[in-house]
């Protein structure tokens, strides 16, 4: 296995409607990949196909060298609007634990390995300080950390994050980006991040899947951050500015 995601002539459909077609590319292991495109272009659809939650309409898609399947323990997943969907009555630690034990039948106790893994995941996102509080009692940025801890708890090889920066202010966006950088440095994990705005993530992305005109493409980040491409992608004028530090910036 040498690729995290390989598409060969893949098209995506939802409820009978084609969303995008002609996806053919391969992405290596260990990358941090952005998934970008306008609203409704099929970003979440791609993640759901990778998770085996949605069938591949046509073509061949392999994740970590295998066909997609539900319940793949090698994938950690944080859905969109994650915390909004969750009741306010659960402790952060219990939620993270469910990420590891939640699919098991019966009431058998957590093993020492389970506890250690939960603690390691909470440590990785610096969430130990509020792990025993309820999800409703912590801030949006902290909730996102807990969500990522839950995805990390099974030691996945691939992390799929759907809009982890949504509803966060600039400072908390930055904290999550730094967190992803740390997680990536400390664990052998490939990270796919669906984002609306590339800017906060530019410093850590290796490449991006962009969904444009009903097709899926992949490019290295230097090629994607291109004035013409981004202007076309978002259908609004976007400029690319190279700052003295060598950072790439896009702005309209």
């Amino acid at each position: 296995m040498t690729s995290s995601l390989t598409l060969e002539g893949v098209s995506a459909a939802r409820g009978g409607d084609r969303i995008w077609t002609d996806g053919s590319f391969s992405i290596g292991l260990g990358a941090i990949v952005g998934v970008i495109g306008p609203n409704g272009s099929g970003k979440t659809t791609l993640l759901q196909m990778m998770l085996g939650l949605l069938p591949v309409a046509s073509g061949t898609l392999t994740v970590l060298g295998e066909p997609p399947r539900r319940g793949n323990p090698r994938i950690g997943y944080v859905p969109q609007n994650y915390t909004a969907e969750i009741g306010e009555s659960i402790r952060c630690r219990d939620l993270v634990t469910l990420g590891r034990t939640g699919a098991r039948w019966g009431l058998g106790g957590r093993s020492g390995a389970d506890r250690a893994s939960v603690d390691a995941a909470l440590d990785a996102v610096s969430a130990q300080g509020f792990a025993d509080r309820r999800l409703s009692q912590i801030s949006g940025g902290q909730q996102q950390r807990v969500a990522i801890a839950q995805a990390l708890v099974g030691d996945p090889d691939l992390l799929l994050l759907d809009e982890p920066l949504a509803n966060l202010d600039v400072r908390h966006q930055h904290e999550i980006v730094e967190l992803l950088r740390d997680v990536h440095a400390q664990r052998e994990v490939t990270i796919f991040v669906v984002v609306h705005d590339l800017n906060p993530l530019l410093s850590i992305l290796d490449g991006a899947i962009y969904l444009l005109d009903g097709h899926a493409h992949y490019g290295a980040i230097g090629d994607v951050v291109d004035s013409e491409l981004l202007t076309h992608l978002y259908d609004t004028p976007i400029k690319v500015v190279r700052t003295a530090q060598g950072d790439l910036f896009t702005r309209s």
């Binding site: 998770l51 085996g52 939650l53 539900r70 319940g71 793949n72 323990p73 994938i75 997943y77 944080v78 859905p79 994650y82 969907e85 969750i86 009741g87 659960i90 939620l95 469910l98 990420g99 034990t101 939640g102 699919a103 098991r104 039948w105 019966g106 009431l107 839950q150 995805a151």
Partner: peptide, 17 residues
């Protein structure tokens, strides 16, 4: 346990099988 998972966190629970 799976019922609790499916109740608080249906999207991730579904992805976990």
């Amino acid at each position: 346990r799976p019922l609790l998972f499916a109740s608080v966190d249906p999207d991730v629970a579904a992805a976990k099988g």
